[in-house]
Each structure stands twice: as structure tokens, then as C-alpha cells.
Design a protein around this nucleic acid. Structure first.
Lengths: 204, 204
DNA sequence: CTATGTGAATGGATTCACAGCC
DNA sequence: GGCTGTGAATCCATTCACATAG
């Protein structure tokens, strides 16, 4: 078990988990790093090094036991814990996310959604009661929310991010095109469709 | 002008462009790599190195001229060209993307949308006539489409990606959780919400 | 003999540091 | 003085290669 784990490694864990789950359903008992790597089109020592950050999970000569590895990764990623998340900003993207069925499988639960608009507050959107964004801190604390999906307009992003941090949020998935400036104790991941699309068009 | 440009550099260009555009609107004439870097929370020599891949764009002692740099980046990213894109798979995500207003600003135009379902084909979805996915190749060729957004179910992803490549697509933005196996002449970028969310929950 | 776990080597992006120009 | 452009140095993830275990 190492102290420092590269973010790239953590980002591959969900991929390993997804494939191990399907192997498990197919009744496969064991798999080698080489086979796993071939399927995922990566290097086999990458698989071994990634997994070794979390202990000696395999058996020399035999490979990795599918079910137990799957469970171990699920624990590492806290897929067994039903973590509370909130969605801040109920525009078209926020609403679409609120309707996303996959949260449960990911060990996540939408515990609150927020907007500042009068005609959304206190209404139910995609099955979730919309709170006034002014009550962000109170709801985040009472619901013990640690992860926020930020889907507000760009102009509001930085200020609301600061409110989220002050309220005790530990991680933000930022869908706005703004580079958020927050303490590095808070993890920020960015999903920026415009960047993805523009980058692609360079390569055509 | 160098031969090889790191993908990371290309991914930062849209970010530079977005900020330069807002500076331009504010009437700012010049900016130094240091100021730009401070705003974007990156290193100033990173900014200079990135830009230097595309020529000597700045002036020593004076920095970069905002408007001309903005235009130069727009050209590099082909934002001035109205490239044709298609969306393959008109489920909830595909439909949400079809409704996205930002394509025009990005120099992109939705030239076609596809689905295989009888009750979508030949219907108009979010203002776009839905084509039969069986006619993928013909429409891609006639509309000169080079970029595809892939929003089909996971099971179908690899097969359809192969069809897209065969039809002459140059870049795929892959929203499915499947690692696509295609010739490396085709650029593939992945947007995987499940990976983003699971990665975040590790860090809480 | 098979396959893991890991130190060493590699490769590529980031950062430093400074020569050169305004 | 101020600031760019860039070779050199550094940092860090990936890959290699092998000692070790089953």
C-alpha cells in the first residue's frame, strides 16, 4: 500500500470495475493482468501497477480472482456506500442529470437539487424537490452531502463554488466552462463539452 | 512551427480562446503570458510554449495582441469553418445534445442525427430529421461529415464505431462507457460520466 | 512453467532559466 | 525595464524486465 496514488490510476479503477463486473456475471473466476490489459487496450504492467497501489491483490501463477477484485475496487471507490450528491443549477443540463438513472449503480444518491429561480424553487423536478440556492449550506450539512454537480451559468460558477466549499463539499464535478479557484483540499473534475468538441475538430 | 503538437496543448487552446474572447469584448488590447497564466491557474511558460507551437505570436516586451491571437486560435481550431457533425443514437443523451445551442459558436453544425428505432426514423427530434442508422455511410458522405457524437447503448458502440470509421469519419466523441478499438488515424475522445463520478467519490 | 509485484528505464509534458528583442 | 521563445532540467506516468511466489 503506497501513500500517493496517481489520479490516472484512480480514473482507471471504474473501467476495471465495469469489466470485472461483466466477467463476474459470465461466471469467469480468474483473470490475468495480461488478459485484462488486452481487452482494455492498455499495457499489462499498467494493470498490475495500478492494482498494486491497493495491496497484493493477485496470486502469482494464477492471476486475479474476479469476484474479490471486483468487491475490493467497489470498496475503494465507495460504490457500496450510497454517498449523497447534489445538483446545483436546474437548467437543461442539470435537469437532464437529475433524470440520469445510473447514480444508484455508482453508489450515489441525489440528496438535493438547487436553483435560484422562483418558478423552480419548491417545485419537483424529475422527482426531486428543488431547494432555494440560498439554502445551499444548510441543506448540504443536514443531508451530509460531500459531492456537488455544478451546472449553473458560467457567471455564477466561481461564487457558488466558494459557497459549496464553505458548506463543506469535498468534490465538485464542474460542468461550467469556468476554471474554478478553490482550496486544493477540494477535488474538482471538469466536464467541458466545448473543449472536447473543439479539440476534436483540430484533429480532423 | 513544430511538427508534433501535444494533445494537452490542443485541449488548452479552447480555454485560451474563450478567455481571449471575453478580454476582447472588454476592450483589452494586449495581455502577457503571465497574466493569462494567472487567470487560468497555470504556469506562464506553459502558455508561451503552447502558443509557440503555432508560430511567434507574441511581441517581446509587449505580450500578445488579444484580437489577433483570438483570431489565430479560432483558425487553428477551425471555429470559422462550420464543420459538419452528426449525433448517432437519439436516446435521452443524444436528444439533449441535439438541443444544445452552443454548436454554432464552436464552428460546428449538426448535419444529421441517427437512430435505429422505427418510431424515431423520419421524425423530427429537437429540430433535426432523424435518419435510419442503416443509412449512416450514405448520409455521412453526402453531408461531408467528419465528426460524430456517439450516444448509442454500450452493446452497439463498437460495431457502430467501425461503421463510422468505414464511412470516413475522422473524429469520434464517445459518450458510451466502451473503449473503442479503431484505427489510430481516427481521433477518439471519451466523455464518461460514470468514470468522472466514481473517480470523485474516491477523493472524498 | 505461469503470472504477480516492483525497481529501473523510458518517454513525454511541465517548469525553469535565460538569451534575445522591444 | 518588460516579456517572449526555447533549450535544459525536472517531474511524473508508463513500460520494461526480472526476481519471486505459487
Amino acid at each position: 500500500m503506497k501513500k500517493y496514488i496517481p489520479e490516472e490510476t484512480v480514473a482507471r479503477l471504474p473501467v476495471y470495475h465495469r469489466y470485472l463486473l461483466s466477467l463476474s456475471k459470465q461466471g469467469v473466476k480468474n483473470i490475468s493482468s495480461k488478459k485484462l490489459a488486452n481487452i482494455l487496450k492498455i499495457n499489462d504492467s499498467q494493470v498490475r501497477k495500478d492494482l498494486s497501489y491497493f495491496g497484493k491483490l493477485g496470486k502469482q501463477g494464477a492471476g486475479y480472482e474476479v469476484n474479490s477484485l471486483c468487491t475490493t475496487i467497489a470498496k475503494i471507490l465507495k460504490l457500496d456506500q450510497a454517498q449523497a450528491v447534489c445538483i446545483v443549477g436546474m437548467g437543461s443540463l442539470g435537469s437532464a442529470l437529475a433524470a440520469y438513472k445510473g447514480f444508484g449503480q455508482l453508489g450515489l444518491k441525489i440528496a438535493a437539487v438547487f436553483d435560484k429561480s422562483e418558478n423552480k424553487i419548491s417545485h419537483t423536478i424529475r422527482g426531486h424537490l428543488c431547494h432555494d440556492i440560498a439554502k445551499l449550506a444548510a441543506v448540504i450539512k443536514s443531508e451530509k452531502i460531500e459531492i456537488a454537480l455544478l451546472t449553473v451559468p458560467a457567471e455564477a460558477a466561481q461564487e457558488i463554488a466558494e459557497n459549496l466549499v464553505a458548506a463543506g463539499i469535498k468534490a465538485i464535478l464542474n460542468f461550467t466552462p469556468v476554471k474554478l479557484f478553490v482550496t486544493d483540499k477540494v477535488m474538482v473534475n471538469n466536464v467541458d463539452l466545448a473543449v472536447e468538441l473543439k479539440t476534436l475538430s483540430f484533429f480532423t
